[in-house]
Amino acid sequence: MTTQQVIEAADVRKNYRGGTEGAGLNGFDLTVTAGTVTGLLGPNGAGKTTAVRILSTLLEMDSGQASVAGYDVRRQGAEVRRRIGLVGQYAAIDEVLTGRQNLTMFGRLNHLAHAKAAKRADELLEQFDLVAAAGQAVGKYSGGMRRRLDLAASLIVAPDVLFVDEPTTGLDPAARLEVWAAVRQLVSNGTTVLLTTQYLEEADQLADRISMLKDGKVVAEGTPDQLKTQLGSDWLDLVLTDPAELEVVRRLAEPLADGELKIEGQRLSVPVKDRTRALVVMANSLHEANIEPEDITLRRPTLDEVFLHLTGSKVAV
Protein backbone atom coordinates (compact mmCIF):
# COMPACT_ATOMS: atom_id res chain seq x y z
CA MET A 1 0.00 0.00 0.00
CA THR A 2 1.32 3.43 -0.87
CA THR A 3 -0.90 5.29 1.57
CA GLN A 4 -1.63 4.71 5.20
CA GLN A 5 -5.33 4.99 4.50
CA VAL A 6 -6.79 1.55 5.08
CA ILE A 7 -10.32 2.63 4.31
CA GLU A 8 -11.24 5.35 1.86
CA ALA A 9 -14.81 6.06 0.88
CA ALA A 10 -15.96 9.02 -1.18
CA ASP A 11 -19.49 10.09 -1.96
CA VAL A 12 -20.94 6.63 -1.47
CA ARG A 13 -24.66 6.46 -2.16
CA LYS A 14 -27.10 3.67 -1.50
CA ASN A 15 -30.85 3.55 -1.69
CA TYR A 16 -32.55 0.29 -0.82
CA ARG A 17 -34.91 -1.00 -3.45
CA GLY A 18 -38.39 -0.58 -2.05
CA GLY A 19 -36.96 1.29 0.93
CA THR A 20 -37.95 4.77 2.05
CA GLU A 21 -36.67 7.73 0.07
CA GLY A 22 -33.43 9.01 1.60
CA ALA A 23 -32.85 5.90 3.76
CA GLY A 24 -29.42 4.36 3.29
CA LEU A 25 -26.35 6.43 2.43
CA ASN A 26 -26.43 9.87 0.86
CA GLY A 27 -22.86 10.89 0.01
CA PHE A 28 -20.90 9.03 2.66
CA ASP A 29 -17.21 9.94 3.08
CA LEU A 30 -14.71 8.24 5.35
CA THR A 31 -10.97 7.77 5.73
CA VAL A 32 -9.45 5.42 8.25
CA THR A 33 -5.72 5.42 8.97
CA ALA A 34 -3.82 2.20 9.65
CA GLY A 35 -3.58 1.20 13.30
CA THR A 36 -6.41 3.39 14.55
CA VAL A 37 -9.88 2.79 15.87
CA THR A 38 -12.46 4.86 14.09
CA GLY A 39 -15.88 5.18 15.59
CA LEU A 40 -18.84 5.62 13.29
CA LEU A 41 -21.36 7.19 15.59
CA GLY A 42 -24.98 7.76 14.77
CA PRO A 43 -28.51 7.16 15.96
CA ASN A 44 -30.58 4.15 14.94
CA GLY A 45 -31.26 4.26 11.19
CA ALA A 46 -28.38 6.63 10.40
CA GLY A 47 -26.85 4.15 7.97
CA LYS A 48 -24.06 2.57 10.05
CA THR A 49 -24.87 -1.01 9.13
CA THR A 50 -25.36 -0.02 5.51
CA ALA A 51 -21.88 1.55 5.45
CA VAL A 52 -20.26 -1.49 7.05
CA ARG A 53 -22.01 -3.89 4.67
CA ILE A 54 -20.88 -1.89 1.66
CA LEU A 55 -17.27 -1.67 2.85
CA SER A 56 -17.18 -5.40 3.60
CA THR A 57 -18.52 -6.20 0.08
CA LEU A 58 -21.82 -7.64 1.31
CA LEU A 59 -23.87 -4.87 -0.26
CA GLU A 60 -23.42 -3.06 -3.55
CA MET A 61 -23.38 0.74 -3.57
CA ASP A 62 -25.39 2.68 -6.13
CA SER A 63 -22.58 5.14 -6.80
CA GLY A 64 -19.36 6.44 -5.29
CA GLN A 65 -15.88 5.11 -4.58
CA ALA A 66 -14.61 2.93 -1.80
CA SER A 67 -11.45 1.00 -1.17
CA VAL A 68 -10.39 -1.19 1.72
CA ALA A 69 -6.75 -2.20 2.27
CA GLY A 70 -6.00 -0.65 -1.10
CA TYR A 71 -8.55 -2.71 -3.04
CA ASP A 72 -11.69 -1.45 -4.69
CA VAL A 73 -14.68 -2.94 -2.88
CA ARG A 74 -16.67 -3.20 -6.09
CA ARG A 75 -14.14 -4.64 -8.49
CA GLN A 76 -11.80 -6.50 -6.14
CA GLY A 77 -14.23 -7.99 -3.65
CA ALA A 78 -12.30 -11.24 -3.26
CA GLU A 79 -9.09 -9.35 -2.40
CA VAL A 80 -10.97 -7.23 0.12
CA ARG A 81 -12.56 -10.28 1.75
CA ARG A 82 -9.11 -11.83 2.19
CA ARG A 83 -8.05 -8.84 4.32
CA ILE A 84 -11.04 -8.03 6.48
CA GLY A 85 -12.80 -9.40 9.49
CA LEU A 86 -16.48 -8.69 10.02
CA VAL A 87 -18.41 -8.73 13.24
CA GLY A 88 -21.95 -8.04 12.12
CA GLN A 89 -24.67 -6.35 14.11
CA TYR A 90 -26.10 -9.75 15.05
CA ALA A 91 -23.71 -12.39 16.36
CA ALA A 92 -23.28 -14.60 13.30
CA ILE A 93 -22.25 -17.89 14.79
CA ASP A 94 -23.78 -21.34 14.64
CA GLU A 95 -25.86 -21.89 17.77
CA VAL A 96 -25.88 -25.67 17.56
CA LEU A 97 -22.12 -25.97 17.26
CA THR A 98 -19.87 -25.52 20.28
CA GLY A 99 -17.57 -22.52 20.54
CA ARG A 100 -14.60 -24.62 19.48
CA GLN A 101 -16.48 -26.25 16.58
CA ASN A 102 -17.47 -22.79 15.34
CA LEU A 103 -13.91 -21.52 15.39
CA THR A 104 -12.46 -24.59 13.66
CA MET A 105 -15.16 -24.41 10.98
CA PHE A 106 -14.44 -20.74 10.30
CA GLY A 107 -10.72 -21.58 10.37
CA ARG A 108 -11.25 -24.18 7.64
CA LEU A 109 -13.34 -21.69 5.64
CA ASN A 110 -10.42 -19.26 5.96
CA HIS A 111 -8.43 -22.05 4.31
CA LEU A 112 -6.29 -23.05 7.26
CA ALA A 113 -5.17 -26.69 7.34
CA HIS A 114 -7.00 -28.94 9.84
CA ALA A 115 -4.28 -28.89 12.50
CA LYS A 116 -3.70 -25.17 12.11
CA ALA A 117 -7.43 -24.41 12.37
CA ALA A 118 -7.64 -26.43 15.58
CA LYS A 119 -4.58 -24.72 17.04
CA ARG A 120 -5.86 -21.27 16.13
CA ALA A 121 -9.23 -22.09 17.71
CA ASP A 122 -7.50 -22.95 20.98
CA GLU A 123 -5.46 -19.74 20.93
CA LEU A 124 -8.54 -17.62 20.35
CA LEU A 125 -10.58 -19.41 23.03
CA GLU A 126 -7.76 -18.61 25.40
CA GLN A 127 -7.46 -15.00 24.28
CA PHE A 128 -11.18 -14.31 24.64
CA ASP A 129 -11.54 -16.16 27.91
CA LEU A 130 -13.83 -18.85 26.54
CA VAL A 131 -11.83 -21.97 27.37
CA ALA A 132 -14.31 -23.14 30.01
CA ALA A 133 -17.24 -22.82 27.59
CA ALA A 134 -15.39 -24.15 24.54
CA GLY A 135 -17.26 -27.48 24.53
CA GLN A 136 -20.70 -25.99 25.09
CA ALA A 137 -23.25 -25.30 22.36
CA VAL A 138 -23.27 -21.58 21.58
CA GLY A 139 -27.04 -21.59 22.14
CA LYS A 140 -26.24 -21.74 25.86
CA TYR A 141 -23.86 -18.75 25.81
CA SER A 142 -24.67 -15.35 27.34
CA GLY A 143 -24.88 -12.28 25.11
CA GLY A 144 -21.40 -11.13 26.08
CA MET A 145 -19.88 -14.58 25.45
CA ARG A 146 -21.47 -14.74 22.01
CA ARG A 147 -20.07 -11.37 21.12
CA ARG A 148 -16.62 -12.44 22.25
CA LEU A 149 -16.82 -15.63 20.22
CA ASP A 150 -18.04 -13.57 17.29
CA LEU A 151 -15.01 -11.29 17.64
CA ALA A 152 -12.74 -14.33 17.88
CA ALA A 153 -14.24 -15.81 14.72
CA SER A 154 -13.43 -12.65 12.79
CA LEU A 155 -9.78 -12.73 13.90
CA ILE A 156 -8.87 -16.23 12.79
CA VAL A 157 -6.60 -14.85 10.12
CA ALA A 158 -5.28 -11.51 11.46
CA PRO A 159 -7.21 -9.04 9.31
CA ASP A 160 -5.87 -5.72 8.02
CA VAL A 161 -9.17 -4.15 8.97
CA LEU A 162 -11.80 -5.30 11.38
CA PHE A 163 -15.38 -4.09 11.05
CA VAL A 164 -17.35 -4.21 14.26
CA ASP A 165 -20.99 -3.23 13.84
CA GLU A 166 -22.82 -2.10 16.99
CA PRO A 167 -21.07 -4.64 19.21
CA THR A 168 -22.94 -3.74 22.39
CA THR A 169 -26.43 -2.86 21.20
CA GLY A 170 -28.82 -4.85 23.34
CA LEU A 171 -26.19 -5.99 25.85
CA ASP A 172 -26.43 -5.36 29.58
CA PRO A 173 -23.78 -3.07 31.15
CA ALA A 174 -21.61 -5.93 32.43
CA ALA A 175 -21.53 -7.62 29.03
CA ARG A 176 -20.77 -4.26 27.46
CA LEU A 177 -17.67 -3.92 29.62
CA GLU A 178 -16.59 -7.44 28.60
CA VAL A 179 -16.87 -6.51 24.95
CA TRP A 180 -15.05 -3.22 25.45
CA ALA A 181 -12.17 -5.07 27.08
CA ALA A 182 -12.03 -7.45 24.13
CA VAL A 183 -12.00 -4.58 21.62
CA ARG A 184 -9.28 -2.75 23.58
CA GLN A 185 -7.18 -5.87 23.47
CA LEU A 186 -7.40 -5.96 19.68
CA VAL A 187 -6.44 -2.36 19.51
CA SER A 188 -3.34 -2.95 21.60
CA ASN A 189 -2.36 -5.56 19.01
CA GLY A 190 -2.44 -2.86 16.34
CA THR A 191 -5.52 -4.00 14.42
CA THR A 192 -7.24 -1.23 12.46
CA VAL A 193 -10.86 -1.13 13.57
CA LEU A 194 -13.96 0.52 12.22
CA LEU A 195 -16.47 0.38 15.02
CA THR A 196 -20.06 1.57 14.73
CA THR A 197 -22.11 2.52 17.71
CA GLN A 198 -25.12 4.49 18.81
CA TYR A 199 -23.52 5.15 22.19
CA LEU A 200 -21.46 8.30 22.61
CA GLU A 201 -19.75 6.89 25.62
CA GLU A 202 -18.63 3.86 23.65
CA ALA A 203 -17.14 6.00 20.87
CA ASP A 204 -15.47 8.26 23.42
CA GLN A 205 -14.02 5.24 25.26
CA LEU A 206 -12.79 3.20 22.33
CA ALA A 207 -12.21 5.40 19.31
CA ASP A 208 -9.20 7.50 18.28
CA ARG A 209 -11.30 9.29 15.72
CA ILE A 210 -15.02 9.66 15.39
CA SER A 211 -17.20 10.23 12.35
CA MET A 212 -20.68 11.37 13.20
CA LEU A 213 -23.29 9.98 10.87
CA LYS A 214 -26.72 11.37 10.31
CA ASP A 215 -29.20 10.46 7.56
CA GLY A 216 -26.53 8.59 5.62
CA LYS A 217 -23.99 11.38 5.68
CA VAL A 218 -20.97 12.16 7.86
CA VAL A 219 -21.74 15.49 9.52
CA ALA A 220 -18.55 15.85 11.58
CA GLU A 221 -15.24 14.08 11.85
CA GLY A 222 -12.20 14.27 14.12
CA THR A 223 -10.70 13.12 17.39
CA PRO A 224 -13.11 13.27 20.32
CA ASP A 225 -11.21 16.38 21.51
CA GLN A 226 -11.37 18.06 18.11
CA LEU A 227 -15.07 17.39 17.91
CA LYS A 228 -15.56 18.87 21.32
CA THR A 229 -13.68 22.03 20.29
CA GLN A 230 -15.54 22.15 17.02
CA LEU A 231 -18.44 23.62 18.92
CA GLY A 232 -16.22 26.70 19.13
CA SER A 233 -16.34 27.33 22.81
CA ASP A 234 -15.81 25.82 26.19
CA TRP A 235 -18.26 26.18 29.01
CA LEU A 236 -17.88 28.08 32.24
CA ASP A 237 -20.23 26.45 34.71
CA LEU A 238 -21.34 28.37 37.79
CA VAL A 239 -23.37 26.73 40.49
CA LEU A 240 -24.89 29.27 42.88
CA THR A 241 -25.87 28.79 46.51
CA ASP A 242 -28.71 31.29 46.31
CA PRO A 243 -31.09 31.36 43.32
CA ALA A 244 -31.71 35.06 44.01
CA GLU A 245 -28.17 35.80 42.85
CA LEU A 246 -28.85 34.30 39.41
CA GLU A 247 -29.90 37.59 37.80
CA VAL A 248 -26.84 39.50 39.06
CA VAL A 249 -24.44 36.77 38.00
CA ARG A 250 -26.08 36.55 34.61
CA ARG A 251 -25.46 40.26 34.03
CA LEU A 252 -21.81 39.86 35.12
CA ALA A 253 -21.32 36.88 32.79
CA GLU A 254 -23.01 38.37 29.74
CA PRO A 255 -19.96 40.32 28.43
CA LEU A 256 -17.86 37.12 28.51
CA ALA A 257 -20.41 34.96 26.73
CA ASP A 258 -19.71 33.73 23.25
CA GLY A 259 -23.25 32.68 22.48
CA GLU A 260 -26.34 31.96 24.49
CA LEU A 261 -26.20 31.29 28.24
CA LYS A 262 -27.95 28.26 29.65
CA ILE A 263 -29.71 28.24 33.00
CA GLU A 264 -30.65 24.98 34.66
CA GLY A 265 -31.87 25.35 38.23
CA GLN A 266 -29.02 26.96 40.13
CA ARG A 267 -26.51 26.26 37.39
CA LEU A 268 -25.51 28.92 34.91
CA SER A 269 -23.52 27.73 31.87
CA VAL A 270 -21.64 30.36 29.89
CA PRO A 271 -20.07 29.58 26.52
CA VAL A 272 -16.63 31.22 26.52
CA LYS A 273 -13.82 31.62 23.96
CA ASP A 274 -10.77 32.58 26.01
CA ARG A 275 -10.89 30.02 28.80
CA THR A 276 -8.37 31.42 31.27
CA ARG A 277 -9.30 35.05 30.87
CA ALA A 278 -12.97 34.23 31.29
CA LEU A 279 -12.29 32.32 34.48
CA VAL A 280 -10.13 35.11 35.98
CA VAL A 281 -12.53 37.90 35.01
CA MET A 282 -15.53 35.98 36.27
CA ALA A 283 -13.87 35.12 39.57
CA ASN A 284 -12.93 38.78 40.06
CA SER A 285 -16.39 40.08 39.26
CA LEU A 286 -17.94 37.59 41.67
CA HIS A 287 -15.49 38.58 44.36
CA GLU A 288 -16.23 42.28 43.87
CA ALA A 289 -19.97 41.63 43.96
CA ASN A 290 -19.40 39.65 47.13
CA ILE A 291 -20.91 36.49 45.74
CA GLU A 292 -19.51 33.12 46.75
CA PRO A 293 -20.61 30.45 44.23
CA GLU A 294 -20.84 26.84 45.33
CA ASP A 295 -18.81 25.79 42.32
CA ILE A 296 -17.05 27.39 39.39
CA THR A 297 -15.56 25.16 36.66
CA LEU A 298 -14.36 25.20 33.10
CA ARG A 299 -15.22 22.27 30.87
CA ARG A 300 -15.18 21.18 27.25
CA PRO A 301 -18.52 20.51 25.64
CA THR A 302 -19.63 16.88 25.92
CA LEU A 303 -19.99 14.77 22.79
CA ASP A 304 -23.71 14.94 23.45
CA GLU A 305 -23.66 18.67 23.03
CA VAL A 306 -21.57 18.34 19.89
CA PHE A 307 -23.95 15.83 18.45
CA LEU A 308 -26.98 17.88 19.36
CA HIS A 309 -25.37 20.97 17.93
CA LEU A 310 -24.38 19.33 14.68
CA THR A 311 -27.40 17.22 13.99
CA GLY A 312 -30.21 18.70 15.98
CA SER A 313 -31.01 15.19 17.19
CA LYS A 314 -30.21 13.28 20.33
CA VAL A 315 -28.24 10.10 20.53
CA ALA A 316 -28.50 7.43 23.20
CA VAL A 317 -26.07 7.90 26.09
Binding site: S56, T57, L58, R82, G88, Y90, A92, I93, L109, H111
Partner: peptide, 13 residues
Amino acid sequence: EKGVTDRFRSLPM
Protein backbone atom coordinates in the same frame (compact mmCIF):
# COMPACT_ATOMS: atom_id res chain seq x y z
CA GLU B 1 -31.77 -14.40 9.50
CA LYS B 2 -28.97 -15.05 12.00
CA GLY B 3 -26.31 -13.44 9.81
CA VAL B 4 -24.41 -16.72 9.28
CA THR B 5 -24.90 -16.36 5.52
CA ASP B 6 -23.42 -12.86 5.70
CA ARG B 7 -20.42 -14.15 7.58
CA PHE B 8 -19.86 -16.82 4.90
CA ARG B 9 -20.16 -14.12 2.26
CA SER B 10 -17.54 -11.98 4.01
CA LEU B 11 -15.02 -14.84 4.04
CA PRO B 12 -12.54 -15.60 1.27
CA MET B 13 -14.31 -18.95 0.74
